[in-house]
Design a protein around this nucleic acid. Structure first.
Lengths: 371, 371
DNA sequence: CTGAAAGCGCTTACAG
DNA sequence: CTGAAAGCGCTTACAG
């Protein structure tokens, strides 16, 4: 039986301990161990002694003390509304890129999961207390007032900001164009009657996708009317319910040729509702998503979708933020330049889209009431 | 045109500033602002003045200074191999629970993404330098030596440890039982010829699932032989390739009744390979997964699977860790008690399992060579 | 009830 | 090349 007790007690070795053990001052130890850029060099022989003592004592510089002296934590924060029932894929992809870039620059990443932007805008203040050197805001939705009162002394960068943030670089992708290309692709295959499952009206992302949808229809001289817009809220559960509901209300009418879902999660919810109703994708109708998250690759059939380069966007956010941290006093963007970085999007062709069936199906009448 | 320059420069207000502004000492300010448990109380009138000054100066306690004085960062770390091509669902579910519990206890969470456990075991050392108060190891696979040399002075807790970690609480679930129940369920429905797509041999999780598989077969007096075990590596891509390969090698032979995949990702990969071969789940054969991650819910059909309560396990890890941090010197477990916490698992019934078809299909001969 | 002192562990000038 | 001093911003005893 091993003794179930770690020696966790007792304090860790400090620079002073190392110095004492090597017969030098703490600051000589600091110079060799923590790579100070002191102009002076330590004699090779002394250096060896210090290194040996440090190894022997298992010395490890204390991050808090260092941060206090340097005014730099080597840590960046990531804040957003991630949890809410289901953690989302969107964030997972982003985090992937953020972690990779942070690792490369030897920065730590602290994740702040907010409940909602409304009440938690105040909480943001609390995070900017020296524990992080800068903060990445993921899809922030702040009121004008809150946006103006972002904590000073802390640099920010935003990803997919849903609101104007004065003096903050915003990183986004060309969503309008992505939506346009997606719908144009459907139209090119012969689809005419296309539904759009859209996100929350008023938010930047959903509105841009709606704009792209409309522009593609207009470009093909296809009529647009509000009935083509089905509200779905960017989330699987909601969309499944919305789609079930839609099918119920349109039983017996001609089935649309295709559906353009505002994101992959919505597309998956839609797929589920269609499957329940006995409709096959892409045989009976085509479906297209947006984002190219894992969700798009783990459905059967896999989803044709618009790829936003989320990991690359996350990486870029880290780089921009680190630059802001280094040059706090530099202006966010050159005079007259926009402080927005736009990534290109790509249409990714997979199995959920096919030409429309020769004989258009009707929306089936519900067979079984399900919960 | 707004001026694109934040006032980021200039330093944040300190306790000394607040004290000065309120005409008291920094420590009086400390007592009222940072809730010191100093036995003495500050006079209500002074208190008001201090509070007012703090508000006026927008005072925010400095985390690093506090950490240095208190020897407590209010931050826990989470380390694991998460990235590797595709960030995994398993971690996403866990993180969900970890973030929720940390939030509740007002702790920050810092995520360390390791490349692999081999080389990075050394990096663990580097993290234990006061920046975190304790560390959660996610599915660690350490050598005996590395395990023995976990940094002192830092409490740990492990989730699904793949190796013995002296004096570290390990949180896991009853995987053997889960595997047993899954296979028993298949057998109860009439399945006889069942394949198991297993993870890496030698790791704790995969081995336990194999044990459960074998026990269920033995319980029903079904013969086991090695050919029922198909190596698949816990990941979608690999499993798809493995399954394609298996189908190719067994073309023309009777199709198995069912497949038990060692995790959901593997099940999804399997599903893809089956779909490519024109085989339908569950009509032609049944499929069952393990974990109940999002992957299990976003396939069509949704997967019958064994649920590990990952968010709850993540929450528990935080609680155990915080307890270890509070009582560093207490033994990890009472004398003679095991320092392992085992969560129960549940079989979740969804659409990927059905009774075997009346007429057993043969493995189809590959129709098109695909890449 | 309030303040002066010392310390947490590290760094950055500044002397020798 | 090396050390003594002061400071980063906060806390915790200890005096008054």
């Amino acid at each position: 039986m091993p003794k179930l007790k770690r020696s966790g007690s007792g304090r860790a070795a400090t620079l002073a301990d190392v110095g004492r053990a090597a017969g030098v001052s703490a600051m000589a130890a600091s110079a060799v161990l923590n790579g100070a850029r002191t102009s002076s060099r330590i004699a090779p022989e002394t250096r060896e002694r210090i290194l040996a003592a440090a190894a022997r004592l298992n010395y490890r510089p204390n991050a808090a003390a260092r941060a206090l002296a340097n005014r730099r934590m080597q840590t960046i924060g990531v804040a957003g509304v991630f949890a809410g029932g289901e953690l989302n894929y969107y964030f997972l992809e982003l985090l992937n890129g953020i972690l990779a870039a942070a690792d490369q620059h030897e920065q730590n990443v602290t994740v702040f999961s907010l409940h909602d932007w409304g009440g938690d805008a105040a909480r943001l203040q609390g995070l900017c207390d020296g524990r992080i050197d800068g903060l990445i805001l993921v899809a922030p939705t702040l009121t004008r007032l809150a946006a103006r009162h972002l904590p000073d002394h802390t640099p920010f960068v935003a990803l997919h900001a849903n609101c104007a943030l004065p003096d903050v670089v915003n990183i986004e992708s060309d969503e309008e164009h992505g939506a346009y290309e997606a719908v144009r692709h459907l139209i090119a295959l012969g689809h005419r009657h296309i539904l759009h499952l859209h996100g929350i009206r008023g938010l930047v992302g959903p509105e841009r996708r709606i704009q792209g949808f409309k522009r593609a229809l207009a470009g093909a001289r296809l009529p647009f009317d509000e009935s083509l817009l089905v509200p779905a809220n960017f989330d699987r559960q909601n969309t499944r319910a919305a789609m079930r509901d839609w099918l119920g209300r349109h039983a017996g009418e001609p089935l649309p040729h295709a559906i353009f879902a505002a994101n992959d999660d919505a597309a998956v919810g839609c797929l589920e509702a269609l499957a329940e109703a006995g409709l096959r994708v892409p045989d009976d109708l085509s479906l297209i998503g947006f984002d190219d998250t894992l969700a798009a690759r783990t459905t059967v059939p896999q989803l044709t979708t618009v790829r936003q380069p989320l990991p690359a966007m996350g990486r870029r956010a880290v780089e921009v933020l680190l630059d802001r941290i280094q040059h706090r006093d530099a202006p966010v963007a050159a005079e007259g330049t926009d402080s927005t970085i736009v990534f290109p999007v790509d249409l990714v062709l997979r199995a959920s889209v096919a030409p429309p069936p020769v004989i258009q199906r009707l929306v089936p009448v519900a067979r079984i009431a399900r919960t």
